[in-house]
């Protein structure tokens, strides 16, 4: 990893942790339900640096973020760890394979939704077998689309800027 990349990775991971912790302070109607703004940094890492770097940023984000919040190894932590890694896997795959190509926004939507779906499925399987999973899943898919569009739009702007900068540096 070159020095410049290392510095950028550090910035991305730091930003992700900061947003992650900030977001936890926002009031939420459901415990563990979060907007997912810190995903912006993971998406930027995925698009600008590639899948491996996105995985690193995400790992740092979830570990350091939950450590700072004091909920490391709690059920919520396990949900967000599995959910975010499934989401990155799907985003990495969808970015390359879909036939009508997706922009950052579409990939971000898929990521947010797959994150939510994974978490709801694990939650339903482990904790709440008798709850109605269908409406819950529907709600979280719709929330995921909304959040995914917003984070995707912001990420897209940052990706644009970073790529512009990279091209001007390369001459």
């Amino acid at each position: 990893m070159k020095g410049r990349t290392l510095a950028k990775m550090g910035m991305l991971a730091g930003g992700a942790v900061a947003l992650y912790v900030f977001e936890a302070m926002l009031p939420s109607p459901v415990p563990w339900a979060r907007i997912g703004l810190s995903n912006i940094f993971v998406i930027v890492a995925l698009f600008v640096f590639g899948l491996r770097y996105a995985l690193v940023v995400n790992l740092v984000r979830v570990l350091a973020g939950n450590l700072l919040l004091g909920i490391l190894l709690s059920p919520g932590f396990l949900l967000s760890l599995t959910g975010s890694f499934v989401a990155i896997g799907i985003m990495g795959l969808m970015r390359l394979t879909l036939v009508p190509p997706l922009s950052v926004i579409g990939v971000s939507c898929l990521g947010a939704v797959s994150n939510n779906v994974t978490q709801v499925c694990i939650f339903a399987f482990l904790l709440a077998r008798s709850l109605l999973v269908g409406p819950m899943l529907g709600t979280f898919i719709l929330l995921g689309v909304g959040v995914g569009v917003v984070t995707g739009f912001v990420s897209a702007r940052i990706v644009d800027k970073l790529q512009l900068e990279r091209q001007s540096l390369l001459g």
């Binding site: 009508p100 950052v104 898919i141 689309v145």
Partner: peptide, 20 residues
């Protein structure tokens, strides 16, 4: 990157459909 593509719209509407 900021421009919505056809694929994006398909994905977004498909997901909204599934959710609803």
């Amino acid at each position: 990157a900021t421009k919505l593509t056809l694929g994006d719209l398909i994905v977004i509407f498909a997901l909204i459909g599934i959710g609803l």
